[in-house]
Design a protein around this nucleic acid. Sequence first.
DNA 1: CCAAGCGTATAGTCTCAGTAATACACATAT
DNA 2: ATATGTGTATTACTGAGACTATACGCTTGG
Lengths: 135, 135
Amino acid sequence: MFQLNPHSGVPIYRQLCEQVRRMIAGGQLPAGAALPSVRDLAIEHAVNPMTISKAYSLLEAEGLLERHRGRPMTVASRPRLQAGPSQRLNALNSELDRLVLAARQLDLTPTEVIKALREKWEAADAGIRRRTGSR
Amino acid sequence: MFQLNPHSGVPIYRQLCEQVRRMIAGGQLPAGAALPSVRDLAIEHAVNPMTISKAYSLLEAEGLLERHRGRPMTVASRPRLQAGPSQRLNALNSELDRLVLAARQLDLTPTEVIKALREKWEAADAGIRRRTGSR
DNA sequence: CCAAGCGTATAGTCTCAGTAATACACATAT
DNA sequence: ATATGTGTATTACTGAGACTATACGCTTGG
């Protein structure tokens, strides 16, 4: 469900926060949806449970998640169910900045980058089809 | 010359290392080119000089830079002057991964992302023309 | 009821990133 | 020769990130 890279330099709890925010904005985590348990996520990613809990707590403080004692955390019911296209594109801004900076420093052309982007996107498609078993 | 973001979560010295590596691979820092002084960079980015020095030392250990006592650091003369297109695209891999993951979680289409990418690229073009004074 | 599953609280430890203040060795231009 | 500019070494301190270990209160299914 999530992809956490412990060697990216970005703190794990921040990676998780960002991904949950995006999946809520993108509608893949609708209001009321239950999040994976702290312990499950910790085992799956070989990470300490408190690291996951820290991320969840931050998201609750932001009003994105709701806490139910003894029950899994859920996506808050109040907030904007899904962000508009422009807001979601906005959320991609920093990632785009990083990519453009890197590509320009590597002296690549937009055409080359876009081609590589399409290929990676299709590779991700294939990966999802494999995992879900869909044909 | 470089863009360092102290709030990205990625350590500053790592950001600098990555950018120097890319600009060498991309040919924008040719063999023998002198790098900005540790003190200048530190002032420009409001960072401690030792943080810059740390990055330079790591790059020297990698063989990318050469040290000349009392003189600026330079790009090593020996190494591959410029990486091939496929190698440079490869260096963009992790950035592409991050972008695709973010975009998919935001439920964006490749078309939307590519459009935003082109716009950001052109904005960077404009910024460079403004700084260099070219018309 | 009670075990199992939730998230949480607390406290201690460890590593690394970044800062700070000096001091040094070398090169170069004046 | 001297001032100025390189990068570097040293030591010490602060803070964040992550881990470890234990315990607690809550809910739900048997």
